[in-house]
Every structure is written in structure tokens, then in C-alpha cells.
Design a protein around this nucleic acid. Structure first.
Lengths: 226, 226
DNA sequence: CGAAAATGTGACAATAGCGTGACAAGCCCC
DNA sequence: GGGGCTTGTCACGCTATTGTCACATTTTCG
């Protein structure tokens, strides 16, 4: 699971660049389209996690794009509309057409990012089941609580994310690089063997169940298969 | 239970006076603001039962105010919009933005009072029975009152909303960002550690029960599990 | 068998994260 | 205009967490 893709459909190159800069800074993959048809195609082929859609586009406008994405239950892709001040009408139509939210131009970048993340969180929550289970280990991401055979574990934030990643890929080997990317974040610049130390700490806290974290020599770590 | 507070945001002093007179006659406490920013601040700090909001304000207009009040689940405060004749579009937008009703100027005072009371009744009904309970803490959203083991707490508006959010997600961890979004609103631009301070104040007022607000190091805060 | 490579382990210093007290600004009511 | 209340910010101190290193142990493979 790599970075989430966000599609920006906007005719003004300046704004596209601005958005790309900030979105990438937040860790998203950014796709761009300068007009409606291109946006539609990208939305269909790439299935981005979210689409930022300008309403005022030459030719095919934002609403046409929204209609093009329409299915029986809302658009194919979550949409956040960018509307110009004073286009009150537009906002209404947009929300009626199934957009998830909108932001009025000129917008505060900070607020836009917050709304983007809120929409993605909403999608996330709707999709992901709350509790991961494997070999007597249960991890509830929302409550930030992990248990082994019912007994609660006192994990630190990093240990928790590490266990979560292993659980999400249980049975599969995770290389140190993969773990660094997902658990520590892309911006982490450090020693790969830091992972080893945290695996050790995690195993210590897992106690008897520590054997479920297997070392795959020369590759990485994985949770034992059933 | 004291009188319900109603906030009037309107730039024309005459109309403010007119509204104050009639609202007080109906037994409400009236707060006034002459422009958008002042209205926003009062709405946040005083948490009135209802806000009468003029759409046409100099500088920051009514929609901006509404947007400033936006949180992840609707505006912070119920809103009744005052729109000028012919601004039909605006009404729709306002309602989409989460306003509860609108009245067209020039309005009949009688009708306005009826609508005010109607909204308050609706709120009442919607929220009655909506008492959140957890670990001896009871929070009555309708009456804006919280108790611990029967003893009433003197919470400020922010503390109240913070406790409400924690109760609504009891057991789940709330990150500082999530709390800022729901309790303070999207347009809040400030230091994330402001949350810490308010948690501290809330804990102080909770007294012996303060332990139910748990710190999850590196993540956020949560209400203790049962 | 023995060297090299990979991983486990114990220890430690740096620091991120949080609690706390204090304070200034804004706003109310008097 | 002043006093009180609320709110957001800051600086300080403490502690758990974290990343790194040196060394021990295990595995691989010539």
C-alpha cells in the first residue's frame, strides 16, 4: 500500500502547482489534469483516493465532470470542489451532485489540507474493519489498544505502529525499508537496523507470543503464517 | 436553568435593537455582534442556543461566518439566517451550509419569533434524551450541563465541547488534530498544544474523576474504557 | 572448520512529548 | 473604566521513548 493518489483537475497551472506542492508535502501522490475530459479519464483509469475539482473549467466544467463520474450511489471517486467566491449557486449544485465538500477560492491552504484529510479519514473509517486479529493478538487501531489472549499490552506509539503494519501484512515479509517507510514515515533518515531494536522491544512485550514475529534472514520480518 | 442565549449578528444597529427588544421580551438572553469576526468569537466562547445571522455583512459575510463555524459534524451553533429579499439563491446555500432556517427581510417580527421558537423546540427534541454517560460523568447537550456523580460541573464552552467530543468517542483515541477540527473548527489556526491546556483545565474540574481522561503518549487523548 | 554476514542484546545519551504555572489579550458585566 | 472570566500561547522541567553503538550470538557458505 503506497501513497494515496490525489487527482487535481484545474485549468490554471499556477494553482495546480501550488496544490501539487502542498499535497506532496503531506505525503500524497499527485495526478494533474488541465481540463475536464482529461480529468475524467484519469479518474476512471487511476482510481485516485480523492479528486480536487475546479468548477470553472473551459469547455467541460466541473459539474459535467461530476455527472460523468456519477453512479447509482454517488460519484466513482470522492470529490472536493474548488469554487470561486460568489458562485453560491455552484456550491449547491455540486453538493447535490454528490461532492463531499467544497472550498471557496481564494482558499486557505491549511484549511484545504484539513478538509482533504478529513474526507480521507471518513473513507478510511467506512472501509477498514476496526480490529485486526492474528494468533491471539488483537489490535484495535481506533482505540489504540492491543491485547494478547485478552491481556492488554502497554505498547509505545512506535511499537504499536510496527505491530499494526505486521498485522496488516500478516504472513508476508516486510523488509526493513518497507517498515521504515510505513512505520517511521518517508522522511525518516536513519539506520535501517533501528527496526531490529524495535522488533526486539515488541517481542519482549509480546512475551510468550513473541514467536509469532519471525525473522526472515537476509530479507526482513513477518508474522507467522497460520 | 437560566435563560437561553441568542446571538444576533447584524451590522445595522436599528435591527439589532429591534431584535434584542423582542427576544428579551420572549425571555431570552441576547448577545450582539456588529460584524462577522465578533460574531464568530461570541459563538465560540458563549455557545448560544441559537444564532441569528445576517447574510449581508460588510467584510466577512454570513456565509464566511457559517464556514468559520464548520466542524466535522455541522456548525458549532444552530443558525437562523436573515436574508434580503430576492436572495433566493443564498437561502439554499445557507441551508446547505448547515443553517437551520432562514427568514427574508423585511420580516414580520411575529413570524421570526415563531421560527426561533420552532428551531429551539426542534433542537430540544433532537437532543432530549441525548444525555451522554460514562464513568459517572453525565453530559446533557441540550441543557449544556455536565455532572460528575450528580454534582454539577462549571465548564466553559470549550471545555464542554471537548468533553462532549471525548464522550461521543469514548474509548477511542482522539488526536490533537481531530479534536481541533471538531471542537475548534476547521478555520482554527493555532498551536496543537492548545488542546493540552484545555485537557488540563477539564481534568482539574473533573476532580477525582480526572483519571478517566487518559493520555495516550504520542497519539492523543481518550476516555478510559469501561 | 572458520570467516563473513546477519541478527540479537545490553547500555546509553539525546530528545520528543507531556504536565504545569504564568501571562497577556479579548470580552463581558458592573 | 475596572475587575473577572475565558482563551490561546509560551517557557520550563521531568520522564518515557527513541535511535545508535558496541559487542555477543547465530547463520551462511566457501
Amino acid at each position: 500500500m503506497d501513497k494515496k493518489k490525489i487527482l487535481v483537475v484545474e485549468d490554471e497551472a499556477d494553482i495546480r502547482e501550488l496544490l501539487r506542492y502542498h499535497l506532496e508535502r503531506e505525503g500524497f501522490d499527485v495526478l494533474e489534469a488541465g481540463d475536464g475530459p482529461a480529468g475524467l479519464t484519469l479518474a476512471r483509469t487511476e482510481q485516485p483516493a480523492l479528486m480536487l475539482l475546479d468548477v470553472m473549467l473551459p469547455g467541460m466544467d466541473g459539474f459535467d465532470v461530476l455527472r460523468g463520474l456519477a453512479t447509482e450511489n454517488g460519484p466513482l471517486v470522492p470529490v472536493l470542489l474548488l469554487t470561486a467566491r460568489g458562485e453560491e449557486v455552484d456550491r449547491v449544485v455540486g453538493l447535490t451532485l454528490g461532492a463531499d465538500d467544497y472550498v471557496v477560492k481564494p482558499f486557505s491552504v491549511r484549511e484545504l489540507m484539513l478538509r482533504v484529510k478529513a474526507i480521507l479519514r471518513r473513507q478510511e473509517r467506512a472501509r477498514s474493519g476496526a480490529v485486526l486479529r492474528h494468533h491471539g493478538i488483537a489490535l484495535d487501531a481506533e482505540r489504540h489498544q492491543a491485547t494478547v489472549n485478552g491481556e492488554s499490552l502497554a505498547l509505545t506509539a512506535t511499537e504499536f505502529r510496527l505491530l499494526e503494519d505486521l498485522l496488516r501484512h500478516s504472513g508476508a515479509v516486510r523488509t526493513r525499508e518497507q517498515l521504515l517507510n510505513t512505520v517511521w514515515g518517508y522522511s525518516f533518515e536513519g539506520y535501517a537496523r533501528t527496526v531490529d531494536t524495535h522488533v526486539r522491544r515488541l517481542r519482549a512485550k509480546l512475551g510468550a507470543a513473541s514467536a509469532v514475529v519471525e525473522t526472515v534472514r537476509g530479507v526482513g520480518y513477518r508474522l507467522k503464517e497460520d
